[in-house]
Computed example of a mutant assay.
Amino acid sequence: MTVGSDIARCPNTPRPACRGYLHKRTQSGLIKGWRRRWFVLTHDCCLYYYRHKRDEGKGRALLGVKLEGAEVGADVSLGKPFVFKCRPQSGNRVFFFCAMSNQEMKWLEAMEKAVLPITQQKHVWVDVTLHNSSLPPLAVKSPECLGLLHKMDKSRDMWVQHYCILKDGCLSLYGIYLQGYQVREQPYGSKKSTIELKPPCDEFKTFYLCAENPNENKWIIALRASIKKWLPLHQALQDYMSRLPEETRM
Rank of each mutant, 00 (worst) to 15 (best):
M1K: 03
T2K: 11
T2R: 12
G4K: 08
G4I: 08
R9M: 12
P11L: 04
P11K: 04
T13E: 07
R15A: 15
A17E: 07
A17K: 14
R25L: 14
I31R: 10
K32Y: 02
W34V: 06
R37Q: 13
W38H: 10
C46D: 03
R51D: 13
K53N: 08
G59R: 10
L62D: 04
L63N: 12
L63S: 09
K66A: 09
L67I: 06
G69M: 07
G73N: 03
D75P: 00
V76L: 02
S77F: 00
C86M: 15
C86W: 04
C86L: 15
Q89A: 15
S90W: 11
S90T: 14
F95D: 11
F96N: 09
C98M: 15
E104R: 06
M105P: 06
M105D: 07
M105S: 05
E109A: 15
E109Y: 11
L116P: 04
I118V: 14
I118K: 12
H123Q: 12
H123K: 10
V126S: 08
D127G: 02
H131L: 03
H131D: 14
N132C: 13
L138H: 13
L138K: 06
K141P: 01
K141T: 11
P143D: 03
G147M: 03
G147K: 00
S155R: 14
D157I: 06
D157M: 13
D157G: 11
D157Y: 11
W159L: 07
I165Q: 05
L166S: 05
L166F: 04
D168R: 12
D168L: 07
C170Y: 05
L171R: 02
L173G: 05
L173K: 14
G175M: 09
I176Q: 06
I176R: 06
G180E: 07
Q182V: 10
V183Y: 03
Q186D: 04
Q186N: 01
P187C: 03
K191I: 00
K192T: 02
E196W: 13
P200C: 11
P200G: 10
C201Y: 06
D202L: 09
F204Y: 12
F207Y: 15
L209V: 02
L209H: 00
A211T: 08
E216M: 03
E216P: 01
I220N: 05
A222I: 05
A225M: 01
I227Y: 02
W230A: 08
H234I: 09
L237Q: 14
Q238T: 08
M241C: 15
S242K: 13
R243M: 14
M250E: 04
